[in-house]
Computed example of a mutant assay.
Amino acid sequence: MQMEAGEDKENEAPAGRKKDTQPRFYSIFYRKAGGQVETRGEVSPAQGTGPPARPASKSTRASALAGRQTGDGLEQLVIDAGQRQFGVITCSTCAVVYTIGDPEDEALHARHHTGYLGALAFPGWKREREVGHYMDGRVVMVTPRDAAHAWRKVDSVLRLVDAELGFVGVGVRNKEQSKVFFYVVERQIVGCLVAEPVTQGFAVLPRDDSTAVRCDTAARPCVAGVSRVWVHRDYRRRRLATRLLEAMRNHFALTPLGWPDVAFSDPTPDGLQFAAGATGSQQFLVYNQ
């Protein structure tokens, strides 16, 4: 009993020593070397009462994270606190995939989203060619004789269109003879069609059980080639692509073009279905651009 009392006295803090009034912070996700997670009653060894440590650099944090990821994979890196949106999502406007709550991801998405909307903005031009007017929008045509600002808008829009369709560095190959058609809704471009001169195309043959597309080896003469057709995801299934195609047939040449005069370039599966529906035939013309 005397030894225990002596030990208690030794453990008592001296009367003159000030109590440690600096608050202690408890690490929720700190993992010990042995792999056990601390409880809320335990203080992290990394958290002392000394001066605050300098924030770690990005490279230091990245290397530390890489080191933690080599364990059992039980690290919780994002807190679910009942947010309305949580985790990885896809923007319905610009189609960018990013993580809600990640500052770097959100900043990248904000920059891309702003550029996307800026590229599709269309306040109107003093000299513009309106070749189609509908209840929900209108079709504007850009020709080789138009001003430089019109073709700069074409280039900015096609950068987004090509990225979505999977083209790399295509743009408009022959601006001296090509025409571009925009579908405009409330000062925003929501559809685009690029037409270029083509002298010959090849008829699509009826498809068999395979998924490959077969074409006739005999070339057929034609006048116009549809290089690309694009409609914004929020405006699809509204016949906007059909209206763009009709505007192209009526205004690409001096006289309206028939379907035998039009060819489609390297159509995707969706493009094949669209071309067949628009032309009313499974044997429409295609060409390789």
Rank of each mutant, 00 (worst) to 15 (best):
E7F: 12
E7Y: 14
P14R: 08
G16F: 15
D20H: 06
Q22M: 12
F25M: 08
Y26K: 06
S27L: 07
Y30H: 14
G34W: 02
G35K: 03
E38N: 11
E42Y: 06
V43D: 01
S44P: 06
S44R: 06
T49P: 10
T49K: 13
P51Q: 07
S57P: 04
R61C: 08
S63K: 11
A66S: 12
G67A: 10
R68N: 03
R68L: 13
E75L: 13
Q76T: 07
R84A: 11
C94H: 02
V97T: 14
D105Y: 07
E106M: 13
A107P: 00
H113G: 04
H113K: 11
T114D: 08
G115F: 01
G118K: 12
A119N: 05
A121L: 08
G124D: 04
K126E: 06
V139W: 01
V140S: 06
V142F: 04
V142I: 14
P144Q: 02
R145A: 09
A147F: 07
A147I: 01
A150R: 14
K153C: 08
D155Y: 04
G169H: 13
V170G: 03
V172M: 02
Q177F: 10
E186L: 14
Q188H: 12
I189N: 04
V190R: 02
G191P: 05
A195S: 11
P197A: 00
G201F: 01
A212Q: 13
A212H: 11
T217Q: 15
A219P: 15
P221D: 01
P221F: 00
V223M: 00
G225M: 00
G225F: 00
V226N: 00
S227Q: 08
V231F: 03
H232I: 02
Y235D: 03
L240N: 08
L240R: 05
T242R: 14
L244G: 02
L245M: 15
A247R: 01
G258W: 02
G258E: 09
P260Y: 01
S265T: 15
D266A: 11
P269Q: 05
G271N: 04
L272C: 11
F274I: 01
F274E: 00
F274V: 02
A275W: 01
G277T: 12
A278D: 07
S281Q: 08
S281D: 08
Q283F: 09
N288M: 01
N288L: 05
Q289V: 12
